[in-house]
């Protein structure tokens, strides 16, 4: 295996501090979302791609059925958005990748967390992760959205497997969504659709 990442970063720092022999250890460097930045276009290309413009919103439709992670078991009802709607409001077709991350944070004390299991037709990246009953789900969709076109992502929900399960309670969660559109050519844009009312699950 090659050099450790911290060694690579430390070498960079050392090279910039050539007047000092002290080696600074890179630990606890703040993490930020890794992104692909499109370099400044050359004059010939600058006129071709127009910037991406879009809106995203959650639509609360039919009451969701919360399914147990891994399938099987009892299904529970509640409220939550059912569709994430994404509309191209720009002057040119969007072609690229749509990345969606949904976080559900409990309001108050809960025994069970809920998460977004699927967001069809997007593909889930990894499993739904739970930490202190806070869930994070990430999805990716690659395709084209024509000018004025709206595409809909259908959400389904799950809940943590806990034994014993609570009964006769309703838990409420805050939903935060990040939508990043990364065109094959041009700069990315980020959207943050809001949710109202807050998702709930009834045990």
């Amino acid at each position: 295996m090659g050099a450790q990442l911290s060694e690579i970063l430390n070498e960079e720092i050392e090279s910039k501090e050539s007047g000092f022999s002290r080696r600074r250890v890179v630990k606890g460097v703040a993490w930020s979302v890794p992104v692909i930045v499109t370099a400044v276009a050359s004059p010939a290309a600058a006129a071709s791609p127009s910037s991406v413009s879009a809106t995203a919103s959650w639509v609360t439709g039919a009451a969701p059925q919360y399914s147990k992670i891994g399938g099987g078991g009892t299904k529970y009802s509640g409220t939550a958005p059912s569709v994430l709607s994404l509309k191209n409001t720009g002057l040119s077709a969007f072609s690229g990748t749509v990345s969606v991350t949904v976080t559900l944070t409990p309001v108050g004390s809960v025994l069970v967390g809920i998460g977004v299991e699927s967001l069809a037709p997007a593909t889930r990246s990894g499993s739904v992760s739970f930490s202190q009953h806070v869930s994070t789900s990430s999805f990716s969709y690659t395709g084209t959205i024509s000018v004025g076109q709206t595409i809909s992502f259908q959400a389904s929900y799950n809940y943590e497997t806990i034994n014993p399960k609570p009964s006769n309670v309703t838990y409420t969660f805050r939903m935060a969504t990040s939508v990043v559109l990364t065109p094959s050519v041009g700069a990315s844009i980020s959207l943050a659709p809001t949710t109202s009312p807050d998702p709930t699950i009834r045990f």
């Binding site: 460097v29 993490w31 990345s99 990246s125 930490s131 994070t136 990430s138």
Partner: peptide, 19 residues
């Protein structure tokens, strides 16, 4: 190497690899 306060590092890195 990194301080991941929100605990989202792996999920975000997976998305980045997909990109």
């Amino acid at each position: 190497t990194f301080e991941d306060v929100l605990g989202e590092m792996q999920a975000q890195a997976e998305l980045f690899l997909a990109s």
